[in-house]
Design a binder for these strands. Structure first.
Lengths: 323, 323
DNA sequence: CTGAGTGTGTAGCTTTGCTACATGGATGTA
DNA sequence: TACATCCATGTAGCAAAGCTACACACTCAG
């Protein structure tokens, strides 16, 4: 009973195709097929069955793949133990983020990580609309993801979830808006406004629905954009109001856009680090996650200390250097 | 980071010598040495250091070996999962027992196990005086061991302990002894008697000391035997009295030996199955342990139901059938 | 000093696992 | 129907990993 083979089975369970597993593990499909065949012979019962041109796992195969995860976790933990003894973080860490979180957390975090010799972090961004966060864990060590309060789509999948921060979603208004002098805003105040929304499927939609329910009206969504900069530009131009994550907002043009907290609806999102459990055990990965958590805390503290969200405070001195 | 190598390191931590590891894993010492060397190079720091003609593990080596156990456990669990799917218990199980427990539990247990096709159990007995129970787990899947109340010598070693039964230790008397009519016996009653004891180092000694303390006198130990049959023979011959495990006693010659419970001292021993944690996960091992536990319960129930220990009752009819 | 105990190097063979290429079945399209 | 495509999977051959056999160095006891 070899661990490498088990690992292959686990990959197959996630990637659903031998060709994909081969690509991910830098092997030829033939090699993967052979190893799985050996595993199957050792097991004494079929682990896969053909389905169309591809194949799917049997119940036994799925069960074995699940316990293969435990093996991988134990192995990664052993690796971490030895890394700790060497006091030397090994290897590279890959990370995907959605744009706003990346802007908020990564420059500061990577600055700190630059001080750790031998630790290399490779970052990419990915549009959250197009990407299935859990699926990304197959290809990246750390996936920065978000979810709204109450929903936790990555519970049952056996992934490791580390909460980084909960970020309030405020209402962004042009500075000369009639509601701009207010300290906070309720659903009834804004339900009749023109909104700049997010594309269908974005979780922000749910909050807009809540506002409609609570406020008793119909919100008019004029435009739908994924990019937050674009949304902010439209709001500043007076073309509508929008939901804006409080800490994420760069505050580029102070005085033209103001943020007001929203009361009466659950308007906040959880930003988390999502990982395969085995990868979460790697010392290098843990180190990066720790830095991210600290950075998130710093950002959060800075915002709550300096200014409750009504006027803009220029802050964020980031001369970032990444690898 | 190969699992086989980690396993070798774990064996080395337990067996303290490369030669021993080689013998246990059916390899030449050279092979073991080479693999450990590779592991050391991968780790980047020394895992062993020479000490006299042998070698000892460094702190790092010990730490790695400990986490290697977790890997082995996860792997064994994976194996068990697949065994469960096949509904077919694989492999052989080796077991050591001390004589009295073996006599009490094994015949009945093995009868049941005979009904499980493909499951082979190899039993041996070993004198508890000569053997270090925890050390035996290196060579046997299941070690039947005992300990007195309060002491648990196999806690810290990271071994899996499954309690099978707690067996009272009674005072064995010849049928014509002056105390034979009594329902129970206190320390003061027997402290002046002539005793048939166990060899030095046996845990029974501790109970005798307790009797002396509680009874306020000096127990005269005439003979010291390890074999319970021999002890019983001496008691029946009127040459002394002795501590006799209640359920273990065969009751071969009814009427010549009576057992009386002892009050006022903690006179009972715990019979447990002792295993390496990884081996404890194997389905075959778990099956055997389950049978042992059931058998222990049966024996205990039979004794408490049929007769409080004063007269002997011939019983033990076991025509068992299992699934 | 000798002998029995340890662990460790080197040479050579066996086994394992990979690639490269060819084959066969399922699917969708001209 | 015929054909192209996308799978998984066989076969041959090669490279590497891991083992044995043997020689050697070292430590300790008598």
């Amino acid at each position: 009973m070899d661990v490498q083979r088990l690992e292959l089975l686990r990959e197959l369970a996630e990637r659903r195709s031998i060709t994909e597993v081969a690509r991910a593990t830098h092997r030829t499909p033939s090699a993967v097929s052979q190893q799985l065949k050996v595993l199957e012979r050792e097991a004494g019962l079929p682990l896969t069955e053909r389905s169309g041109r591809g194949l799917i796992l049997t119940d036994a195969g799925r069960a074995l793949a699940r316990s293969a995860t435990d093996v991988a976790v134990a192995l990664a933990r052993a690796n971490a133990v030895w890394d700790e003894f060497r006091n030397h973080v090994t290897g590279e860490v890959s990370l995907v983020t959605f744009p706003t979180a990346g802007e908020m957390l990564l420059p500061g975090a990577l600055q700190q990580i630059a001080g750790v010799p031998g630790l290399i972090v490779n970052c990419t961004d990915k549009d959250p609309e197009l990407s299935d966060f859990p699926a990304l864990t197959a290809d990246f060590d750390i996936v920065l993801a978000y979810s709204l309060r109450g929903q936790l789509p990555w519970g049952g999948r056996g992934l490791t979830v580390v909460p980084l921060m909960t970020e309030p979603l405020d209402v962004g208004l042009p500075a000369d808006h009639r509601l701009a002098p207010r300290a906070w805003i309720g659903p009834a105040d804004v339900v009749g406004e023109t909104w700049i929304g997010a594309p269908d499927g974005y979780p922000f939609e749910r909050i807009l629905h809540q506002i409609e329910q609570q406020g008793g009206g119909q919100a008019l969504v004029a435009q739908r954009f994924a990019d937050m900069r674009l949304i902010e530009a439209f709001v500043m131009a007076g073309l509508g109001i929008a939901l804006v994550p409080r800490y994420t907002w760069g505050g580029d043009q102070p005085g033209k856009l103001v943020l007001k907290p929203l009361r009466g609806v659950d308007a906040e999102r959880q930003i988390v680090a999502l990982m395969r459990p085995d990868r979460a055990e790697r010392l290098a990965v843990r180190t990066v996650v720790d830095v991210l958590r600290a950075e998130a805390e710093r950002v959060q503290a800075e915002h709550t200390a300096s200014a409750p969200p009504s006027s803009s405070s220029s802050s964020s001195s980031s001369s970032s250097s990444s690898s």
